[in-house]
Design a protein around this nucleic acid. Structure first.
Length: 280
DNA sequence: CGGTTATGGTCAT
DNA sequence: TGACCCTAACCGC
């Protein structure tokens, strides 16, 4: 379930559960075993995220600290159990386990299926951050950096939104939904997108993704189009919360009734309403 | 049980 | 553009 909001939520949860505490680090599955042994018993400083990259900082005694770089990819999960009586034995393929035990309660977190789980230096971490575009969830983000790339590009805005070097943290759900909410035709070239539109899309992404952090799911439907307001059933599956177009191809648009379309853009299925989304 | 799909990304061609 | 990586859920047989 990993778009940028998932990683920010994870950073908050990991920091709350383990920050400033001594942790046991292990790799039950074995693929991170050597690195885990080096980190076992160190103090977890905190966790932070940039776009879809997560960095867990541990105090290994070195000047710059050590970082576990995690990227969940498409199918990875990092489940944080912040308050348990006893840390249970691992089940299935657990690449990385963080755990701590205390009289007032124990905690553990299991990483599975991640595309990246690596021990990196502060410099390596900085390089990843530098390669990334601005992340709407970070207060210090500069949306103008993304605009400079977008307004010079002939590529469709539907592809640019997925480029993590242009903008970091947006994935396939937020891409489709922000285009819908701003009435933008997905194949519009970046250079044809008015600046006012980009400004509004950025502000909207920041707000939507913040809601995603708080709720742990992606909801993008405005109050007047919510199920209760329209007398329709809530979304049947829980993949993305309440959305306008994501994975709704073949179904009627919630606003105008036109059939939602699907097309592969930038290697992923993009969903849109051809009637509501006609502007640049 | 096998095939398909998935909120992602890299590398080779 | 396609192969591939990682894991889990779901579907049809």
């Amino acid at each position: 379930m990993p778009e940028g909001h998932t990683l920010h939520r994870l950073a908050l949860d990991l920091s709350a559960a383990f920050g400033g505490r001594r942790v046991s680090v292990s790799s039950p599955q074995g693929r991170f075993a050597d690195e885990a042994a080096l980190l076992d018993g160190t103090v977890l400083v905190d966790a932070q995220s940039w776009g879809k990259h997560l960095f867990v900082q541990l105090d290994d005694g070195s000047a710059d600290g050590a970082f576990v770089h995690v990227h969940l990819g498409l199918i990875g999960t990092f489940a944080v159990h912040a308050s348990v009586d006893v840390v249970p034995p691992p089940v299935g393929q657990v690449r990385l386990r963080l755990a701590r035990s205390a009289p007032d309660g124990s905690a553990y977190a299991d990483l599975r299926g991640a595309i990246t789980c690596a021990l990196v230096t502060a410099d390596q971490r900085a390089a990843v951050v530098e390669r990334s575009g601005p992340d709407p969830l970070r207060p210090d983000a500069e949306p103008d950096r993304a605009w400079q790339r977008i307004h010079r590009s002939r590529k469709p805005v539907g592809a640019l939104l997925m480029d993590q070097g242009v903008l970091a943290g947006v994935g396939n759900v937020y891409r489709a939904e922000v285009l819908f909410r701003h009435g933008v035709a997905p194949m519009t070239a970046g250079r044809r997108l008015p600046r006012v539109r980009w400004n509004a899309m950025w502000d909207d992404l920041r707000d939507l993704m913040q809601i995603g952090v708080e709720r742990g799911r992606i909801d993008t439907v405005r109050p007047e189009h919510e199920p209760e307001a329209m007398g329709r059933e809530p979304r049947a599956d829980d993949h993305g919360g309440e959305v306008y177009v994501y994975r709704r191809d073949g179904l009627p648009c919630l606003v105008c009734g036109t059939e939602i379309r699907r097309r592969v853009v930038a290697g992923r299925n993009l969903f849109w309403c051809p009637s509501c989304q006609q502007r640049g």
